[in-house]
Design a protein around this nucleic acid. Structure first.
Lengths: 212, 212
DNA sequence: TTCGGCTTGTGAATTCGTTCACAAGCTGAA
DNA sequence: TTCAGCTTGTGAACGAATTCACAAGCCGAA
């Protein structure tokens, strides 16, 4: 099993992302090797799950010892594509867009927001950090000039699909959507939705069930 | 099958939340009945999936016709616990906290943020909208006085666990976590994590795979 | 009333993900 | 070197979620 022949299931990829965070914590603490059980404990899962997940990457553990923190950190970075930087465009400089823009961990992980688009004429031309906000009309030009890899959508639901269609037409292959709308796009474009409402409502369901 | 005897799988609950949004859209458009295939099309899933999901609620469809938009909207609201309001406390009035506070759809769905806590002395006492920001020291008192049902965590990872322990001790049973840390809490407390990093990194994985 | 065209609800089949359980292998001590 | 104590990697068993496929049922037209 290795990263070239098999695709890793989505649920596993998400956990790998967590394991990487834990490994970095361990690294900072000076720990040089961890057992699957230690990662499981941090992640709220089981040791077997951790080992199965890691087995998708190849065989990096040492029996009797565990995994080298430094080595596994490197491997995970590589597999997750975090060994280079990604150029990111932010669509929408409202409340959520701005909060995302200033979220430090993105940059630390190699996601560089180099482009910000907003259709509010009052905002166009002003700066967000060091980035000049550009108009929606310049979308295609901006994406090409800045060689964008990935787009974050943080605009109102009503305009999201229209913008994304244009983004896809330019050849972007990854979209992170914060708009509360189900985007429709070609199968070869990777899409993740972050929906605050869905999460809250599933909590609401849990609370409502308790009352019965 | 009904909502009293069987618990609905988590994946289904999340989709129900989407269906509800679609139904509200249809309602606004004046549509009075929808087929499972219409909901599937909007949600990017299959008609069979929609019917299976809805079958958890009981039998509200009419063969040959579909589902009554008004009726199903009401049923979904009830099942998801959106027929009453929930009292929500926001921990952390930083960038993300503020953006969440001002996110209109929350209020529209019956989630009322009545309490805001921050440990920055400069912020305590100032207002966010109509809410006075209270100090971390008042956490327990505030949660009780305001009869909070649900807590949103939007504080730095380093302090999140400590705060949540106190929240749980007061008897809160639902937590929505935006801090990039895996919270540990009793099994009877419902927890949802929203991690921007996990989502971005899974997109990064998708992009990295394309390059091979 | 009868028929044709749709659409639901749901067992059965399938696919996908998790957990189990254990042989294989590393390390350090004696 | 041998042995005891851990821990990995992975088939096999299990369980959960999705998809298939079709009988049952509703509606409107003739």
């Amino acid at each position: 099993m290795n990263e070239f022949t098999s695709r890793i299931p989505d649920a596993t990829v998400r956990r790998l992302s967590l394991y990487l965070r834990f490994l970095e914590d361990f690294g900072r603490l000076g720990v040089s090797s961890v057992a699957s059980s230690a990662l499981a404990e941090k992640g709220g899962t089981t040791a077997a799950q951790v080992r199965k997940d890691l087995s998708h990457l190849g065989s990096y553990g040492k029996r009797g010892l565990g995994y080298s923190v430094a080595e596994l950190t490197e491997v995970l970075r590589g597999v997750l594509g975090l060994d280079s930087t990604w150029r990111v465009a932010l669509l929408g400089a409202g409340r959520i867009g701005t909060a995302l823009f200033e979220y430090e961990p993105f940059r630390r992980r190699g996601f560089h927001i180099t482009t910000v688009i907003d259709n509010d004429p009052c905002k166009v031309g002003t700066r967000l950090g060091a980035i000049r906000i550009r108009s929606e009309h310049q979308l295609e030009a901006a994406l090409r000039e800045d060689r964008i890899d990935l787009v974050i959508v943080a605009v109102p639901a009503s305009v999201a699909q229209g913008l994304v269609d244009r983004v896809v037409a330019v050849g972007i292959k990854a979209v992170l959507n914060y708009a509360p709308v189900q985007l429709r796009l070609p199968a070869d474009v990777a899409l993740r939705n972050v929906s605050m409402l869905v999460e809250l409502e599933s909590l609401s369901y849990a609370l409502a069930r308790r009352r019965e």
